[in-house]
Design a protein around this nucleic acid. Structure first.
Lengths: 121, 121
DNA sequence: GCTATATTTAACCAAAGTATTAATTAACTT
DNA sequence: AAGTTAATTAATACTTTGGTTAAATATAGC
């Protein structure tokens, strides 16, 4: 797993790590704050390792402040993923078109079951 | 690695597999066509496994046509990744803004060293 | 210096991932 | 039926990942 992008995708391939990123999207947080939701499921050293994976992937930066290690999102790796995704935009937009088409077929009959999955615009 | 999104990101965390997706972005291709660029580096069974990973991740579908197995991109998993990325859009767009700001500071002095990293538009 | 809090490092282990070679299946061609 | 091409499966080996517990480090406060 030598290249950057592979390392980034590998870092994203874990729900705990994605959860930590979601938390960091709300703002800076230190290790124990990030750890709190997971301490029933895993130990603190496990958290440290997850954060190290995120850091090496370029998704977060960790700084020092007394005995705390505040972490925050780093744009770099997100940008790399977004750039890579661009080349497939037409494919996943197809699936939106298909959903739109489907929705058109059901708009008349009020369907309580149809989940719209947050389709924007 | 139970959840879908984790499986998808894990599938993307490999340059061989991303290369196969890039090829498929140009259109359908069967296994040996997809394998060709990699047969110096790895065996055909390895290719089969990579394709299975992409398939289980929902990134491709494989069909049957005589003794060939034409593969093509499947929108689903791409859509899931794109949706997940949305929540971080502001972060990676920040890095574009920062690059723009930087470029503004150097536009007058022609800098040969500055890599622009494919900034679009 | 002692103690408490925050976090990391070390040593280890089980499970998953990536590759191999050899054998097998499937479909077409002659 | 025999041979060729396309692809997969099986058995195996090696490496990486994700977790553990125990010990260590770093900083602050008394």
């Amino acid at each position: 797993m030598r290249d950057n992008l592979s390392q980034t995708f590998a870092a994203l391939a874990d729900p705990t790590r994605r959860g930590m990123l979601a938390k960091l999207a709300e703002g800076e947080a230190n290790v124990s704050e990030l750890a709190k939701p997971y301490l029933k499921e895993m130990s603190l050293p496990a958290i440290t390792k997850h954060l190290k994976v995120l850091e090496r992937a370029g998704l977060i930066t960790k700084t020092r402040e007394a005995q705390w290690r505040p972490c925050k999102l780093k744009e770099d790796a997100f940008k790399d993923v977004a750039d890579w995704m661009e080349q497939y935009r037409m494919f996943w937009e197809q699936s939106l078109d298909r959903l739109d088409a489907y929705l058109k077929t059901v708009t008349s009959k009020s369907s309580a079951k149809g989940k719209t999955r947050g389709r924007k615009k």
